[in-house]
Structure formats: structure tokens, C-alpha cells
């Protein structure tokens, strides 16, 4: 881990800690985020963490570029990985079904396995939230079993239902709201991923751990899920 600071805009500096996506980055990234928030205090406008970087957007009326740089250096001096662990653990119910997860069969075919095995592989491991982006509450999670890794669709769908669970390469995610999307869809969750009434708004935060739990159609409905097939939503 080596801290690099790059200019990216008039009032933004990019703090680069790593060069590759790795689950081992997270304790460092979380610690760096906390230190930067504390170090900048009210002069921080936004802090945008991603897999290997944290973008610091600060108030340019309160800090010169030089002062902002010094603030970053000071905040990250002798950085230690966050010992408090990896954030919260979540169990997210998923109804895996071809009507709401049209690529289930494709992934099964690609891996030479049955749909049940695909479901087992996807729900059989714990994922880490690497980053939030694309849409409010959209959490990029990984790493997915190599057997399930699949490129994004050649042509993204114009409309993906809220709660849709998908795979792209070795990452998985659930769409918090209706949106366009190019991920391979395998199921749907009734969980509300972004809720403006919730404290912190987003169910998932970087560093959180997630396990997907297969549920039946009945359970999905009783949890408030919408089983409208994808094709019926065009």
C-alpha cells in the first residue's frame, strides 16, 4: 500500500492506495475513509471511495490545493488497516427463477452445470461490497465463483426490474431501482436496497459482507417481492 495523490479537478484530489481489485484492500480503504473524513471535517464536500481509490472533493473556498494535499498526507500518515473488521453482514433473500433471471440458463450452459448448481455457486459464498456506484445503493460485490463469471450483455436491457440480481465478470449486484442494465440476471430480491427513509439510505455500504439466500416464490411474495416477469415489464 502506497499513498499517491493526483489532481483530478479544481477542487478534487484522487487518493490512490492500490493498483488491483482485492478483498484485502478493504480494511485499508475503510481506515483511509475514516481518517480523511476526520481530517477534512467541514471542509469535505464529498468522499467517493471506489475499489482502489478515494476521491476527495473539498471546499475550495476553505482550502488551497496545497493545503488539501497536506491534509491528505497528515490524515493518512502511519495508516493502519481497520481492525474493526469488515462492516456488517447481510443475508439477502433471492428468488432464483428464469422468469425474473433470464440468464440463469445461459450461465448454466456456459459452466456446463445445472441451474441448481449455478444457484448453489452464487448463494454458496460470502461477498464483499467493493464500491457503490452506477445508481443510488447499487453495490458492486465480489468475487463470484470463476465458473459463473460472464461478460456483460452485448446489448444492455433498456429496463431492468428493481431487485434484479445479476452477474458481470466476477462481480455480482442487485439493482436498487428500475434502470437500464447489462448484467446477466439470475434472480430477484424483495429487499429494499435504497430507502430515503432509512438511516444511511443504502442497505449496503463498502466493506459490508453479503450472503444471498435462496427463497421460494411464496417466501419472495410474502417478503414483498414483485414477481412480474422481466418480459412483461417492457
Amino acid at each position: 500500500m502506497k499513498v499517491r495523490i493526483e489532481v483530478v479537478a479544481i477542487d478534487c484530489l484522487m487518493v490512490r492506495l492500490f493498483d488491483a481489485i482485492d478483498e484485502a484492500n478493504m480494511p485499508w480503504m475503510l481506515a483511509a475513509g475514516q481518517r480523511l473524513r476526520a481530517g477534512f471535517g467541514d471542509a469535505l464536500i464529498d468522499l467517493v471511495p471506489s475499489y482502489t481509490t478515494l476521491m476527495v472533493h473539498y471546499d475550495l473556498l476553505r482550502l488551497t490545493p496545497g493545503a488539501a494535499r497536506e491534509c491528505i498526507v497528515r490524515a493518512l500518515k502511519d495508516l493502519q488497516p481497520d481492525a474493526g473488521g469488515m462492516g456488517r453482514c447481510h443475508e439477502i433473500p433471492v428468488w432464483y427463477d428464469r422468469s425474473v433471471g433470464p440468464e440463469l440458463a445461459l450461465l448454466a450452459q456456459r459452466s456446463g452445470e445445472s441451474i441448481e448448481q449455478v444457484i448453489d455457486r452464487h448463494s454458496g459464498r460470502e461477498y464483499q461490497v467493493f464500491a457503490l456506484g452506477f445508481a443510488p445503493g447499487f453495490a458492486f460485490m465480489g468475487l463470484v465463483d470463476e465458473q459463473l463469471a460472464a461478460p456483460r450483455l452485448d446489448t444492455p436491457r433498456k429496463r431492468v426490474a428493481a431487485g434484479s440480481v445479476g452477474i458481470a465478470e466476477r462481480q455480482t449486484a442487485a439493482y436498487p431501482a428500475v434502470s437500464p442494465g447489462g448484467w446477466n440476471l439470475i434472480g430477484r430480491t424483495p429487499s429494499k436496497l435504497f430507502d430515503r427513509q432509512r438511516d444511511g439510505y443504502s442497505l449496503l455500504q463498502p466493506g459490508d459482507r453479503v450472503r444471498f439466500v435462496p427463497v421460494s416464490h411464496d417466501e419472495f411474495i410474502s417478503l414483498g417481492g414483485d414477481d412480474t416477469p422481466l418480459e412483461g415489464q417492457e
Binding site: 483530478v8 477542487d11 478534487c12 484522487m14 488491483a20 471506489s50 476521491m55 458492486f140
Partner: peptide, 10 residues
């Protein structure tokens, strides 16, 4: 590149 934060006007 690995996805990273995008500032206004990028």
C-alpha cells in the same frame, strides 16, 4: 482502468 470517482466536468 479500475472504476474510480468522477469529478464534475471530467
Amino acid at each position: 482502468m479500475i472504476s474510480e470517482g468522477i469529478p464534475l466536468g471530467a
